[in-house]
Design a protein around this nucleic acid. Structure first.
Length: 203
DNA sequence: CGTTGGATTGGCT
DNA sequence: GCCAATCCAACGC
């Protein structure tokens, strides 16, 4: 299956609210330490913007959020709830704290390795949910800051972008502030989207 | 330095 | 539907 070329730096050098819907249909590839390759098609994202009270960048640079303020096209990985990792794609120019949370994907390649890490063979439980996906892909603190444009650990391929008419928006999951910003983007009706708030298809 | 609660998940009622 | 698991960032004193 052909997935095209890597997404270039310029793809990420835009507002997170533009990058988030544009990431749907793209393919995240992971090279495990043993050389095995995993791939999945993105179906669910969330945008976190500068000045956004829900963003880790809202209160300025901290050791944790530092990568968010760095150059675009890098991975921002954080640890939460004492046991889970979540991964983001850094957006906007160097110096701006902005990113897109990767929340869900359709497994394409390396399902056996994903199932082993996840402890289940249920395909819809492998990468549907931000912490499930990082576990399936073996993404931890060690990949925080990884360069998706030039690196080998993880990268993004063009895949097939999803047209606006097939994208639905909702409020962000688990976010109690800034509910007026409907910045969760999903492929409408896709079975690999995790359950979430009621969605509305874009016009 | 102590407290609080989180961009979650899975198991149990 | 409810809640425990389990770390640590951020904030207040």
């Amino acid at each position: 299956m052909r997935q095209g070329r890597r997404l270039p730096r310029a793809f990420f050098t835009r507002p997170s609210t533009q990058v988030a819907p544009d990431l749907l249909g793209r393919v995240l590839v992971r090279t495990l330490p043993d050389g095995k390759r995993l791939a999945a098609r993105i179906v669910e994202t969330e945008a976190y913007a500068p000045g956004d009270p829900a963003s880790h960048s809202y209160r300025g640079r901290t050791p944790r959020s530092e990568v968010m303020f760095g150059p675009p096209g890098h991975l921002y990985v954080y640890f939460t709830y004492g046991m889970h990792f979540c991964m983001n794609v850094v957006t906007e120019p160097d110096g701006v704290g902005s990113a897109v949370l990767l929340r869900g994907a359709e497994p394409l390649e390396g399902l056996d390795a994903m199932a082993e890490r996840r402890g289940t063979t249920e395909v819809r439980s492998l990468c549907s949910g931000p912490a499930r996906w990082t576990q399936a892909f073996g993404i931890t603190r060690e990949q925080d800051g990884a360069d998706l444009v030039r690196g080998r650990d993880a990268y993004l391929l063009e895949g097939e972008p999803v047209p606006g008419s097939a994208i639905a928006t909702t409020t962000r999951v688990g976010v109690t502030v800034a509910v007026e910003r409907p910045w969760r983007f999903v492929v409408a009706g896709d079975p690999f989207v995790s359950p979430g708030p009621p969605s509305r298809v874009r016009g």
